[in-house]
Amino acid sequence: MIFGRVAGTVISREKADKLTGARYRLIEKCDQKGTELNDFLVALDMVNSSENDVVLLAQGSSCSWTDITKNKAVDAIIVGIVDLIDEKGKLTYKR
């Protein structure tokens, strides 16, 4: 998984992934301190995240291994909201 910060929301009515009521979040990749890396992607929000949250992103075919996304054309999903990151005993991020 990689870190990302919830930067906003993407609305798309004409879709082919057969997901209804799905929320697509605009995510900016970030490092373990939460510093943005100017690299954006769209991810399906599975955990009801809110703006500015640092989240955990799963990418690729593993994304279709949840009940909602089973056999659905999705390759990036938010799998968790990060509360705290500790690196070598030092707190690098706290929600």
């Binding site: 906003g8 993407v10 009515r13 879709k15 697509y24 605009l26």
Partner: peptide
């Protein structure tokens, strides 16, 4: 898989 209608950022 999707045509974007709008993008809200910050």
């Amino acid at each position: 898989t999707g045509i974007v209608d709008n993008i809200e950022k910050e």
